[in-house]
Design a protein around this nucleic acid. Structure first.
Length: 114
DNA sequence: TCACTGACCGTGG
DNA sequence: ACCACGGCCAGTG
C-alpha cells in the first residue's frame, strides 16, 4: 500500500511531539534520533513548519534546539507566542533561552509510546 | 531541471 | 575554547 511513505517520517515526528508531557520540552535532535536518523534534525524543524496544517495541532512550542533556545519562536503566529505558551506550562524563558532547560528536558522513549 | 535553503546536530582543525 | 563543514528530506526559485 504505497501511501505517503515519503512523508511517513514526518508523521512519526508529529506523534512524538504530541507525546511530550505538559511542562516538558525536547530538542529536534532527540526527535530525529528517535525516528532513527539524527541527521534529519533539520527536517524536524521543517516538519514543524508543516505542522501548522497538522491535526491535531502539535505542541511545537515544546520543541527547542539543543541549546534550549526558542529558535522557532519566530515561526509562530507571534514572536512571543512560544514563550507565552511555555510560561503557561511553568517553563520560564529569558532572552529566548529556557531557564533550567535541562530540568524540563524530556527524551522521547519508545517505551513511552501510548 | 539544477541548486539552495531550512525552527539542527555532531565532528574536525 | 572558537570556526568551518557535512548530512539527511522536501519544497521553492
Amino acid at each position: 500500500m504505497q501511501k505517503d511513505l515519503q512523508t511517513d517520517w514526518i508523521e512519526k515526528i508529529y506523534r512524538i511531539v504530541r507525546r511530550i508531557p505538559k511542562g516538558k520540552v525536547t530538542s529536534y535532535g532527540a526527535i530525529a534520533e528517535c525516528i532513527g536518523t539524527r541527521t534529519t534534525a533539520r527536517m524536524v524543524g521543517w516538519a514543524m513548519n508543516a505542522s501548522h496544517n497538522a491535526r491535531p495541532a502539535v505542541p511545537a512550542h515544546r520543541v527547542v534546539n539543543r541549546n534550549g533556545l526558542l529558535t522557532g519562536k519566530h515561526h509562530f503566529a507571534t514572536p512571543t507566542l512560544m514563550q507565552e505558551l511555555l510560561a503557561a506550562e511553568g517553563i520560564f524563558v529569558e532572552q529566548d533561552r529556557i531557564l533550567d532547560f535541562k530540568k524540563h528536558y524530556w527524551l522521547p522513549d519508545e517505551n513511552n509510546k501510548d
